[in-house]
């Protein structure tokens, strides 16, 4: 290792990148300490010098302890189950470190538009703790996360020392949740299609009856017990459940608040339709999703709506 590297490492060790904020009580403490210092200088009172020394040493010791809490931390994002714009959501981080106990850690994302944090009282060495906090994102869309800010006010609450851990990541925030319109099918903004096809005997619903198996029919439909009892191959006929299949269309040509409003409305319709048992698809410019059901598909729909109209590579 070159000498310059060693020196740079020593410099980094001695002067790690930290932020320091003085709390309200800390400001009063500093003012009092300065007052005591002035009093000591004015009067020559040695006991005031002693008090001043203890005050200053307390500040230094407090800085050492807070630094000890921040060194060697490892944080990874566990993310959120679902994050909707304009409402708080639970976000999780996993914090750990190999050596030393850390106290009173507050975790927050460095993204300027993400509000909220999580607090951890104690982190023992070698232990990974999942910390949950409530964040708030103002708009939908992908948020490019660059770092996690870890701060501590331990031990005295006079100073808040922080560091930023460079952990790149992304948080996808779904459109704001609004109440679904009374008529969940759009009148013109999307392509609403209601299908009521009923293919008797080819469905997966309730049992409708038994009949003889014809040639060429799927043997998997045979009811083997009844066939054995009847002495001929009988097949089960099941009802086909009525399924509404809807493809919602989003006009990505709109801009600004109109686009946001449109996204929120389509998302509300999609959620309402999915909750009503319909299969929902989406056409948002070049992005298309086939009609489908289920929570996973709902997340795909919401994700597509979250990204709709936002240029690729220019996240929030």
């Amino acid at each position: 290792m070159r000498l310059a590297d060693v020196l740079a490492q020593v410099r980094r060790w001695l002067r790690p990148p930290r932020t320091l904020r003085v709390t309200r009580a800390g400001r009063t403490y500093i003012v009092l300490t300065m007052g005591i210092g002035l009093g000591a200088l004015n009067t020559g009172n040695n006991l005031l010098y002693l008090v001043l020394g203890v005050q200053l040493a307390t500040i230094v010791a407090s800085g050492l302890l807070s630094e000890a809490s921040l060194r060697g931390l490892q944080v990874r994002r566990l993310g959120a189950d679902a994050a909707f714009a304009g409402e708080p959501f639970v976000y999780r981080w996993a914090v750990s470190r190999r050596r030393g106990t850390a106290f009173v850690l507050t975790l927050a994302e460095t993204h300027p538009q993400l509000e909220g944090s999580a607090t951890l009282a104690l982190l023992r060495p070698g232990e990974e703790v999942v910390v949950r906090g409530r964040l708030l994102a103002p708009h939908r869309g992908p948020y490019a996360l660059r770092g996690i800010r870890v701060t501590t006010t331990f031990p005295l609450g006079l100073f808040s020392k922080g560091r930023v851990l460079e952990v790149p990541g992304e948080l996808l925030v779904y459109p704001r949740r609004i109440p679904a319109p009374r008529d969940v099918l759009p009148s013109d903004g999307g392509r609403g299609e209601q299908t009521a096809r009923r293919f008797r005997a080819e469905g997966d619903g309730d049992t409708a009856g038994l009949r003889a198996l014809r040639d060429g029919e799927d043997a998997r439909r045979v009811h083997w017990l009844k066939s054995a009892l009847g002495g001929k191959l009988l097949r089960v006929e099941r009802d086909v459940e009525e399924t509404r299949s809807v493809v919602l269309t989003l006009d990505v040509g709109a801009h600004g608040p109109a686009l946001e409003r449109s996204c929120e409305e389509v998302a509300a319709r999609a959620r309402a339709l999915l909750a009503g048992g319909a299969a929902v698809g989406l056409e948002a410019g070049p992005d298309r999703l086939r009609p489908d059901q289920g929570p996973r598909h709902e997340r795909l729909l919401l994700g597509a709506l979250a990204r709709a109209g936002l240029q690729e590579g220019a996240p929030r």
Binding site: G53, V54, Q55, A57, T58, V60, A61, L65, P155, L156
Partner: peptide, 15 residues
């Protein structure tokens, strides 16, 4: 408690 110890020793040294 460790902080207090450091603060007192530091205070004496400052003094």
């Amino acid at each position: 408690a460790a902080l207090t110890g450091v603060a007192l020793v530091g205070g004496v040294l400052f003094f």
